[in-house]
Amino acid sequence: MNAILEPVTGRYVRFEHDDRPYRIYFEEAGQGIPLLCLHTAGSDSRQFRGLLNEPRITERFRVIAFDLPWHGKSSPPPGWQRGAYRLTSTSYSDLILAFMAALGLERPVVMGCSIGGRICLHLALAHAAKFRAIVGLQSAASTPRYYDPTWLSHPEVNGPVAGAATVMGLMCPESPEAERWETLWHYMQGGPGVFGGDLYFYQVDGDFRTRVQDIDTEVAPLYLLTGAYDYSCSPQDTRETAAHIAGARVRIMPKLGHFPMSEHPQAFIAELLPVLEEIADEQRSTAG
């Protein structure tokens, strides 16, 4: 047998937040500058498996990816059966800050995709000083409602499978088949109502169009990386958002879609490495 033991470790951290006990699962690998990774709506931290296994990143960055409560291996808090799950700008950003405090992370780089990319804009506005740099993937200030996600919670619809079917076309058709279908598998394992609950933040509560111009990229550099095949957060959406933020640095990734780190990890890493180099260099020059 030729077994490979990955350098990735998974652990749980428990903390009280918003008067409720949470048990949050996270994976990490590497050492150096903390790089906190935020998964997309309806999925989990497995989306960052490629980054966690990439020595060119982990030799300089401590990559940490956690499952939001209700996602992956982070169960909902007790009492979940009595209320609907609904992510908001406030609950999302507060949870990220609580996780950082629980792990004692000081000024990490935060990198989030889709809903994670959107919350990066909120963090850049309200909490920029807590971060070394902010990297939004598939990030824009708003998304039009071109489909109705409430159908994903209909009792006669298999929500997780329909959710996977909803997002499957957001990927570049040329991304590797195995990686695309692994990305869909994560969606197929989602809890009932969770994807739709995340989309409440993405489509309704998290509209950020009137506030992005107040982001100060002097406090924390802001990078916006968007895959060309994404029609949910399209390159045009990202460019329009960036046009209102002085100093935002945009990079369009031509052969990627809405799930760059998961649908084609190697292609994404090639796009990300120069950004991380820049962040590490700025860190060095600041420290020097």
């Binding site: 109705d148 499957m168 076309g169 570049c172 095949y229 031509p254």
Partner: peptide, 24 residues
């Protein structure tokens, strides 16, 4: 397909495809 032409939902967003009938 060119970027943005690979899925029917992309055409829903652009308004170039419409869905009618039994949405469930």
């Amino acid at each position: 397909p060119a970027p943005g032409d690979q899925d029917i939902f992309a055409f829903f967003r652009s308004g170039e495809l419409t869905l009618t009938g039994d949405t469930r």
